[in-house]
């Protein structure tokens, strides 16, 4: 089974890094295959950017996302640009402080987290992407939290490992709670 994932936002949010950690967790610690591709403009900051990750049990030949099953949007521009291309049975994950939802489509399930605000509460806005990663992990189950944490630890500078792991936990916990609520709602 192939899972197609797109992480999107603007340059400077750590979007590519987030995709990188998902890919790394998958291919080094979950023993599956993951291919990460990225697109960005010439500007280092502020322009729309996205990371595409394919996750699969089998070797990945064609390396690109065609119809993502999971879209993470961390900016309005990214949401507007990429959400029309999300699988109608897919999962949409947003930072709800940064993205205002438009009309829902198909059976898309939407999950929201104020990842940037939560990161700011930790005193480090820069880890918003890792809060989001924790949330993503809890919601989608595409990667195991153990693999994710290992990948976080060896993808950030030593002195920032603790901060990033706390950010991950924060997002992960938030995700578990959201999931509980949505289960209850279904019942």
């Amino acid at each position: 089974m192939m899972t197609e994932i797109r992480i999107s936002g603007y340059g400077g949010q750590g979007i590519i890094r987030c995709g990188y950690i998902i890919g790394k967790a998958t291919s080094l610690y979950d023993n599956k295959y993951a291919t990460l591709t990225q697109s960005f403009g010439p500007e280092a900051r502020g322009s729309a950017c996205s990371a595409q990750v394919l996750v699969s049990e089998d070797k990945i030949l064609y390396p690109y996302v065609t119809l993502p099953h999971i879209l993470v949007a961390m900016s309005q521009e990214a949401y507007t640009k990429f959400s029309p291309n999300l699988d109608l049975n897919g999962i949409l994950i947003i930072d709800d402080d940064l993205v205002t939802l438009q009309e829902a489509r198909g059976n898309i399930k939407t999950y929201a987290i104020p990842s940037t605000r939560l990161a700011e509460e930790m005193g480090a806005k820069i880890v918003a992407n890792i809060v989001m990663l924790g949330f993503f992990t809890a919601i989608t189950g595409v990667i195991t939290p153990e693999a994710a944490k290992k990948a976080v630890s060896d993808s950030v500078p030593q002195r920032l490992v603790d901060l990033n792991l706390r950010a991950f936990e924060k997002g992960f916990k938030f995700g578990q709670e959201v999931k509980e609520v949505s289960k209850v709602e279904k019942v």
């Binding site: 990188y20 890919g23 291919s27 080094l28 295959y33 993951a34 291919t35 990460l36 591709t37 990225q38 990945i60 390396p63």
Partner: peptide
């Protein structure tokens, strides 16, 4: 560029 900027194991 694709291969250069593609990340895999």
């Amino acid at each position: 560029e694709c291969v250069g900027h593609m990340t895999e194991k």
